[in-house]
Computed example of a mutant assay.
Amino acid sequence: MSTKIPTTVITGFLGAGKTTLVRHLLAHAKGKRIALIINEFGDIGVDKDVLAGCGDETCREDDMIELANGCICCTVADDFIPTMKALIAREERPDHIVIETSGLALPQPLIRAFNWPEIKAEVTIDGVVTVADAAALAEGRFAANEDAVDAQRRLDAMLDHETPLGELFEDQMVAADMIVLNKTDLVTEADLQAVETQLRTQMRKGTSIIRAANGEVDAAALLGLGIGTEDDLMGRESHHELEHAGEPHEHDDFDSFSVTLPAGPARDTLLATITETIAAYDVLRLKGFAAIPGAKARLAIQAVGPRVNAYFDRPWREGEVRETRLVVIGESPLDRAGIEARLKTLAEAA
């Protein structure tokens, strides 16, 4: 085991805070050289751009590898295995590998891939960390409890659908060796205790819960678990595996596409339109970067349901095209034409 490269798999539902957690981890890795594999579900690599430049000493840009050809659990043979083999073959091997999966990913196929002979001899899963959104769970969203979901439907249009989201959430919980309950600063202590009680009904015995705000978790708590998850598969089966004897799943229940716009309207106008678009078209997740007239920095946008957050993350680089790039994710079928038309009309009117 000591000769194998430990790997941490970080999973979690859309907008739970995986990228924020990884960013904090890289900045506080205490000298460990970390290779980062990012599984971006969408046409443009937003997450890699967010992470680039943080933790330079421990995760250089050439240590960041993006798999943008769809969910990592569906492209194990084509993308993941060759990527891992290339990392293993490097003369200067990383001390630790971190894999940030797409919010739509089922962890189980990825865990099993570590038993491929050419991977198993060199790499081991240090642990699977699932990030959960405490604020969303406290509101009854993205949970498997149908009674809680029904109680929230009149308050949140996102909950009007009979969807596979609850099962997906359960699958990510049951695969975890550790659950990071994020955004706890947005929830009362009583609600937090209720959320943790609910999570324990969906977790395997022995799984720990760590509370966090803004993805701030001590690197020592995430790295060095030494679990060897690939050899501990019992009880981690997904709903699909249990129902279909291990047949691979597909993402037909989700749509994802990108929209590119010229430098747009003022910040408040853009965010208001994004909020209206999310509500009108039942968008689950929207993220990207915007070019705001007169601003020297690009505006990073992260939206989960009705909550839209935005901040200027870095200055525009010399020669960089100043345009707005957004990834939209939602349940199939999304009205792509309608969403694009609304956003493009806004840009043209600016």
Rank of each mutant, 00 (worst) to 15 (best):
A297Y: 02
T277W: 08
I329A: 04
E91R: 07
I119N: 12
P164D: 14
I292V: 15
A300Y: 00
D95C: 03
R90Q: 13
A52Y: 05
T101F: 00
G31Y: 12
I278E: 01
A291G: 05
R317C: 03
A105M: 03
I10S: 01
W116H: 15
P164E: 13
D56I: 10
H24E: 02
F142C: 09
D133V: 11
K4H: 02
I125R: 01
N309D: 15
A86W: 07
D62F: 06
R325A: 07
V327G: 06
P117E: 00
N182A: 04
R211F: 09
I209E: 06
T11E: 02
D335L: 06
L242K: 14
C74N: 03
A280E: 11
L284E: 13
E122L: 01
A29I: 14
E146T: 03
D253N: 04
R33Q: 03
N214F: 15
G226R: 02
L192S: 04
I99W: 03
C59V: 04
E139H: 05
A310Q: 03
L334M: 14
P248Y: 11
A213D: 02
D171M: 13
I81K: 08
H251Y: 13
T269E: 14
L326H: 14
K4R: 11
S208Q: 13
A220Q: 07
V217I: 15
E318Y: 11
L270H: 07
E237W: 06
G166D: 09
K344Q: 13
A135N: 04
G338R: 11
Q198E: 15
E196D: 08
T20N: 00
A190I: 15
W316I: 06
G70R: 05
L326I: 15
R93I: 08
G15N: 14
A77G: 12
I81Y: 08
N145F: 08
I65W: 00
T130E: 08
I65D: 09
N39H: 05
H240N: 11
R33M: 07
M84Y: 05
D335H: 07
M178F: 06
I329S: 08
E331M: 13
E162A: 14
A138D: 03
G226N: 12
Q302W: 03
L165A: 14
L67K: 01
I209Q: 00
E118K: 10
P164N: 09
R307W: 15
L192M: 09
D255V: 06
A68I: 12
V321D: 12
V308C: 04
G206N: 12
L222G: 09
I209K: 03
V328K: 04
D282K: 05
M234A: 15
K4D: 06
E247K: 15
T269H: 13
E348V: 02
F142Y: 02
G246Q: 01
T260V: 03
M173E: 01
I274C: 12
T277L: 13
L343P: 09
A176D: 07
S256P: 08
A52I: 10
H244T: 15
L26W: 10
A212P: 10
H239S: 10
H24A: 00
V195E: 06
D126Q: 05
T130N: 02
R141Y: 06
L334A: 09
